[in-house]
Design a protein around this nucleic acid. Sequence first.
DNA 1: CACCTTTCTTGATTGCTGTTCAAGAGCATG
DNA 2: CATGCTCTTGAACAGCAATCAAGAAAGGTG
Lengths: 190, 190
Amino acid sequence: MPRNRRPVPREEKREELLAAAAELFVVDGYEATSMTRLARRAGVTPNTLYWYFRDKDELLVAVADRFTDALLHEHASLTGRPLAAQLSWLIHRLRPVRHLVATMHGRVAVSDAVRTWHTGFHTTFEALFTRQLPGPIATDRRPAEIAVATFALEGAITHDLDDETTRQLCAVVADRLHHAATVATTPRPE
Amino acid sequence: MPRNRRPVPREEKREELLAAAAELFVVDGYEATSMTRLARRAGVTPNTLYWYFRDKDELLVAVADRFTDALLHEHASLTGRPLAAQLSWLIHRLRPVRHLVATMHGRVAVSDAVRTWHTGFHTTFEALFTRQLPGPIATDRRPAEIAVATFALEGAITHDLDDETTRQLCAVVADRLHHAATVATTPRPE
DNA sequence: CACCTTTCTTGATTGCTGTTCAAGAGCATG
DNA sequence: CATGCTCTTGAACAGCAATCAAGAAAGGTG
């Protein structure tokens, strides 16, 4: 008994499914969320999911995109605030989806879609970092400095640190970037 | 037609299975290695694996332990060399098993065995870091400084950076730790 | 020697997974 | 009315991790 043919337009329906996926992926985790359970939650048969998404990984990427868009949109209102504060905000904002962050990294090796997304995400994020700096960094050092900051952020999200350590970590990263952006050349130990 | 009862002692057989698992996990990845395929490779039926290991995650942890033991053993001969060189060595040494590193992080949320292992691994590694420092770090800053170094290392392993950026990253991390270990108090930006 | 227990291996099975296939329903257009 | 497109479905598939019950070989004990 199929009640058919566009009660809702395509994009809207896609968004519904995405919302259900986002909730289950975050609450129960990606692996623990089977397509069948997800479909049931969305009031649909599993097959329908495959009409809107190629496979489970594409669903994951779409969910990640949703989160990223929201994140960047909210972050826009933080420009001008101190770098350490921005970092702290990002970490606390992303902690609830830490499982997803870890899952994405784990599936980079498995899924082309995820790998592509991951690359793009880092590009976006590194640009965001660079924009927030008080000054330019010596071009030879810049990629490494940005990488350290990014990885520290990822680590702080996926591993659980207590609040004090998190605060200190933000201070350390911000301090380091500030230092790198103001001093033209830093002395190299031994 | 089972040819039975200890042709080889238990630990030896366990080691054989572990060796097969290590190879397949590294070459093909954890997810792509089914218990059936792994068993076939080891010349055994899938059930036998469950006699020696509780489940697939425990197999993964055992493999990770093997790698870690070997790693720490090899690293022992590097004491005294500059910190940046040690970091560089660690990164290049762990890059081939980057998939496993990512998989472990992904499964922390799924498996108790993996979570326990992961916690222990970080403890070991942070102790190793602390031991290599030229001096003590102010106790309030130390966890964060060590965390940044650890996360930078993990990031450098799991994301692919080019050689030059990797080199610079090691220099940045070593520089930062050196700085933190020699200066008693670091000024806090704004 | 016979008997029992423990250690190990196996074939068969289970419930679940992501995914695909073929078919059909509803709407739009010719 | 007919044709075609969009969407949904029930049924099925191969593969997965894991379990169960059965049995074979050895060691220990009488």
